[in-house]
Write a protein that binds this DNA or RNA. Structure first.
Lengths: 237, 237
DNA sequence: TCAAAAGTGTTATGATTACACCCATGA
DNA sequence: TCATGGGTGTAATCATAACACTTTTGA
């Protein structure tokens, strides 16, 4: 129980020698469905296994810097929303110290998703959150946690708009909330609510070439940095 | 940017050699004020410095296990609420890898606080959150984050009751919320709200020897494990 | 009998819900 | 002209806020 009585292979004795990895749950909203970027990996037996985008922390990198670099590597663009979830510990196969993952979640705008081309590796896929299978157990825990966090946070802040293009229709917003929260929302009540929040403003543009009345495009009435803190937003449906 | 090209002093090469510490913000509600346990520490120059209860991860310990052991060491009792905040990174004085703190916050019931005696060290103090000074910068960040988290979580779950004795009056609950949220709450509206939530039940006991009308004691109508998940609680004042 | 805190009741306001309806457009 | 989705209006219901009031107790 006293300090300094542990094995000290590491230069920083007295400190633990846990292995640390950064894992990113990268979200995208496309075709009415919430998707996550998964990376294909072959294990020693040649079996295919999916995992979250991840990397270890490089010399000189901060932990959030590592997460940002993972995003840049897989997504190419660099206007994304990124926030830490928490640290996850799990038994190490090779050490008596737990392995540690620091989980992050990110959101990428649909319009930025000329991603398929940018991604260096073909072993990458956007998978609907409802259709994920073969994700390793440790990453499944992080994914589930990120979904819980995402659901909570889109209700108390405007971060959900990071999944939509710059210009969007009110119904797109509604479908986003319906999909992520797994609920049905009344259309007219949703419109009234979001409009009187003064959160979006009319861009004076309309849909074109749709086979029904064209919807107005709106854009978000808020700076990126205001998203998480500030402004009392309450999307309780 | 490729894996495995970093310096590999550590046995676990390819993995980083960040130093990790577990920090605990331990809350207590006493005499109408929210307090935090701080530990006195002398730096190399003999100056007094306060820090959060902390330790490094011992061999064979999980990260949450380390946090629990910190609680046991400083508090003595072992029925406390404990939850992780997140991982914090900050520049290391001695390495090009960031140092990492995994922050936790804990709540200790007032009645369990025959703590002053149990605590092994005299260099420990309960300080009102409004009166904290001399806390080192890294721990200040964690403390501030824990307060934000605490404020959010007591509004959407019943975890705040972990700061109260088993039997409490409705006004005690109200004062707890007023103190933590830094607001004033209307008494009759608060009573109506909490009673119709069916969250507490009348214990058929009353205050004794008070120089005013004795208040009823209530107790929480919920199991510990239900606290965080489940049950739609909404303490929006 | 007074002060202090417990505890009750009432009304006004505002948000949410449910639902019916009209509008614009391409096929 | 019909189907489809965009968009408006309204009445009922429910939660909240504000505030005035009564009750119980020890000093």
């Amino acid at each position: 129980m006293e300090k300094g009585d542990e094995n000290s292979k590491n230069t920083a004795n007295q400190y633990s020698t846990n292995r640390i990895e950064i894992d990113c749950v990268i979200f995208n909203f496309e075709g009415e469905s919430l998707k996550v970027l998964l990376v294909k990996q072959k294990d020693n037996h040649g079996n295919i296994n999916w995992e979250l985008a991840n990397d270890c922390i490089k010399k000189g990198e901060t932990i959030s810097g590592t997460a940002q670099n993972i995003l840049k590597k897989y997504i190419g663009v660099d206007n994304f929303f990124l926030e830490q979830l928490k640290a996850f510990g799990y038994p190490s196969p090779s050490s008596s110290y737990e392995d540690i993952s620091i989980g992050y979640y990110a959101m990428v705008k649909t319009e930025d998703k000329d991603l398929e081309n940018n991604v260096f590796s073909p072993d990458v896929e956007w998978v609907s959150v409802n259709e994920i299978s073969g994700l390793n157990a440790k990453h499944k825990v992080i994914l589930d946690y990120s979904l819980k966090e995402l659901r909570q946070n889109i209700c108390k802040s405007a971060i959900g708009f990071n999944l939509l293009p710059e210009k969007f229709t009110l119904l797109q917003v509604m479908h986003l909330y319906e999909e992520i929260l797994g609920i049905e929302i009344n259309k007219s009540n949703f419109r009234r609510k979001i409009l009187q929040m003064n959160l979006v403003h009319d861009s004076n543009q309309k849909e074109e070439a749709v086979s029904h009345r064209a919807a107005k495009f709106y854009s978000l009435n808020m700076q990126q940095h205001e998203m998480l803190s500030s402004r009392e937003i309450n999307f309780n449906f």
